[in-house]
Amino acid sequence: MNLVIDAAGLGKQYGRRWALRDCSAAIPEGKVVGLVGPNGAGKTTLLHLAVGLLAPTSGSIKVLGANPGEDAAQLGRVGFVAQDTPVYPRLSVAAHLRMGAWLNPKWDTELAERRIGELGLDPHQRAGTLSGGQRAQLALALAISKRPECLILDEPVASLDPLARREFHRSLMEVVATQGISVVLSSHLIGDLERVCDYLVVLVASRVRLAGEVSDLVSSHCRLSGPRRDASSLPANQEIIEESHTDRQSTFLVRTADPIHDPAWTARPVTLDDLVIAYMSRPTAPERTGRPTLKVMS
């Protein structure tokens, strides 16, 4: 499988502080990938490393198989929408499109103008007077009109109101549908992503806690509740992600490829939201040994 982002032992240090440390991630091509994590997890650093705005302090990162930002051609292959979608406030919308045309050899003038037209933006309006939603749309139009092979967006909707978020996501889905490019977008809220993503990466403290197709992730996890039991009594093929206990009852969120057979349990499906929060709040790499191995007798 070809990878959009292939990071190995990646780190970025500012002075003594590590913004990202020993991060390894393999994000496949041809998906709409949601990168979720709490603030400070290193999402922005990882994405800036991926577009070549930063150089790694340690480790390596390849984007579409090449070093990020190594030359003009590689810069042209990756479209980027930065956090808070910065634009030049004193330049008009039309001037931004001219900038795009001048600085990108593969620029698609027709696409850019059509998008601006569809959004109802006045080409002569200064970008500084656009609303947050319009500015985000302009930034998206600039990023896609350079005809990149993949699009990377860093919390593009974080500062937008719910309506503008939906509009932005609709635009993004149109792009994906018509151009079929790989997309990686980050957010600290899963709610921003679950409607648009088909692949999810959860990043906590520089580490990938969870990665996979959204549908697989949802189907491979379930929430078990039943009479109180100790975690060590669960079968080894059920990875415990989260557990909570009352006096009489226990609830576990488990990852398992196999069906649940124990009749004492009530198994319920999990939402993506539950799943992400469980992984985000999970202590790092729990090691449990000596748990029973159950065999299905048929």
Partner: peptide
């Protein structure tokens, strides 16, 4: 923050 725009064009 416009460096993120300027430095991610194909140049």
């Amino acid at each position: 923050r416009t460096f993120a725009l300027a430095w991610t064009q194909s140049i």
